[in-house]
Amino acid sequence: MSILRRNNVRVTGRAAGRTVVLAHGFGCDQNMWRLVEPVLAENFRVVLFDYVGAGRSDLSAWREERYRELDGYARDVLEVCEELDLRDAVLVGHSVSAMVGVLARAAAPERIGSLVMVCPSPYYLDEDGYRGGFSAEDIDELLESLESNYLGWSAAMAPVIMGNPDRPELGEELTNSFCATDPGIARVFARTTFLSDSREDLRSVTAPTLILECEQDVIAPREVGAYVHSAIPGSRLVTLAATGHCPQLSAPEATASAISAFVSDLGR
C-alpha cells in the first residue's frame, strides 16, 4: 500500500504555489479543513491527508506501538512529505497536530520550512506556574469517559452523516467516514494527545511560526496561546474573533486569510 493511499493524501490548488500541508487534530480527519481549503487553494498548492487510524486512511496499517507516541504521527507527516518530495513546505497543524508539526520540522527542516499552529497546546495539565486548562482529575475523567462512552462515541456519529438534505455536498462519499473514529483508536489518540508534554520541544523551534488562537477555547485557552507564543522566539500570534477549538470551521474566512497572509509574507 502506498503512503498516498495509506494516508488518503489529496493534493489540490495552484501547482506552482508554495505547498501548504494541512494536518487535522484529534477526533476528526481532513474534512476539518473543507471550508479553508478552497480559499488557500487559490494561491497555494494544498496537501490534505488523514493520519493512519483517522478518516479514510488504511486502518489496517494502524499499530498501537507507533501511534501511542506523537512521534508516530510525525512519521506519518514526514512520510507524506517524502512521498511528495516536498521542500520548504508550510505545515498547518490543528490542535495536537501543531505539536506533531514541531517534531516533524525538527526531523526534516529542509522539507518543512515553517509552521502554522491552529489552537495549539503543548500540555493540557495545570501545574505550578503553568495553566494548561485541565486538572489531573479532568484528564482522568476525560480518559475514563472515552473508556466508558465508546458505545455512543462510535455508534452515535456514523448515522449522523447519512441523509443531509441541506448540504448535498456532504453526500454519500462521507458516509461513515467523517469523524467516525474507531473507538479503540480514538482512545489511544486521546491518551497521546492529552498526556504528552511538548513544552520543551517548543524552545528549539527555529522555523517562522504563526500561532492562531480563538477568543474562547475551552481546550486551548488564551494563556496557552500566550505560552506557546513566548516559548517560540520570533513567532507571530493572531487571536481570531472566533469561539471553540475549530476556527477553521467556525471562522473559516478569518482563519484562511491569517494563514494566507503568513505564507505570503514568507517571501519567494
Binding site: 476528526c28 476525560l142 475514563e144 456519529m157 449522523v160 469523524c179 481546550i219 475549530c246
Partner: peptide, 15 residues
C-alpha cells in the same frame, strides 16, 4: 463534563 466538553468541541460543534 470535561469529557463531554471535549467531545462537543472535537465532534459535535464541527459536525
Amino acid at each position: 463534563t470535561v469529557g463531554g466538553k471535549l467531545y462537543h468541541e472535537t465532534h459535535f460543534a464541527p459536525l
